[in-house]
Design a binder for these strands. Structure first.
Lengths: 127, 127
DNA sequence: GCACTACTTAGACAAGCTTCGAAACACGAG
DNA sequence: CTCGTGTTTCGAAGCTTGTCTAAGTAGTGC
């Protein structure tokens, strides 16, 4: 059905990443490559109104407040979330554009090569 | 494992990730959260036939062979790639199903929160 | 002003990661 | 069998990261 010619596939599988671009993306990926930060991002994104107070987040973990604050800072430095102080509390929300960048990297990978135990069938796509 | 019948919103922003799931995904993300491994994955995926020999990969970096081998092992342990020895050379290829899991996590994140509540009040003061 | 709560910053420590050189393993050629 | 090439494993050095305690900043209320 589909030609294994990676014509419409994820950027990552279409052409080799440039060194600089890989470094830039790695920073973004490092930010989410942690169970706590992954859950934080998820909690913020799925919270009512699209934003969450730090106190809500802290209660969900068995970690100290400074540790949560540190993880939030990592996410914010990477650009994945942003925050604002509103009175006593600080609220965080997701920056969709940056998160989408990660999705675009891996998302449109074509259906798996059914050849289990072997690489993509290298049958010549008749051109 | 679940079929990627994701409707519209990214799982990560739809409901809070469970602790176990976050840990599992973090392992996958840690594997790709490195410039070298990101480029390796990209080079393997975009190589002719969908597979690449280690010698091809080693030449593209200013790193020693053991280092490249180490990174390939990390990717393979995570399940992102698989390999096979064919005579003298070892060939690697991407496992699309696992890569797709990452894409499904972030990909379909909708555009910024609509007016139905949310941090919309704040003006776009991008810092 | 003073006390209290919410959150962040600073400093320190253990654990893990990236990289290397040296050595071991796997295979084909002679 | 022995040699040479391709690839992985082993052991170690240097840097980064996750977590904590202690202290600092920002706001509310008496």
């Amino acid at each position: 059905m589909s030609a294994p010619t990676t014509a419409c596939c994820a950027p990552i599988a279409r052409e080799p990443l440039a060194e600089a671009e890989a470094a830039e993306l790695a920073v973004l990926l490092k930010a989410v490559a942690d169970p706590v930060r992954l859950r934080l991002l998820s909690m913020i994104g799925s919270h009512a109104g699209g934003e969450a107070c730090v106190c809500d987040l802290t209660d969900a973990f068995e970690l100290t407040a400074p540790t949560i604050s540190h993880h939030l800072k990592v996410l914010r430095t990477a650009g994945l979330i942003d925050c604002e102080r509103r009175g006593t509390w600080v609220y965080y929300w997701i920056v969709p554009a940056v998160v989408n960048r990660l999705g675009a990297l891996f998302a449109p990978l074509a259906e798996p090569a059914p050849a289990s135990g072997g690489p993509v069938d290298i049958e010549l796509t008749t051109v």
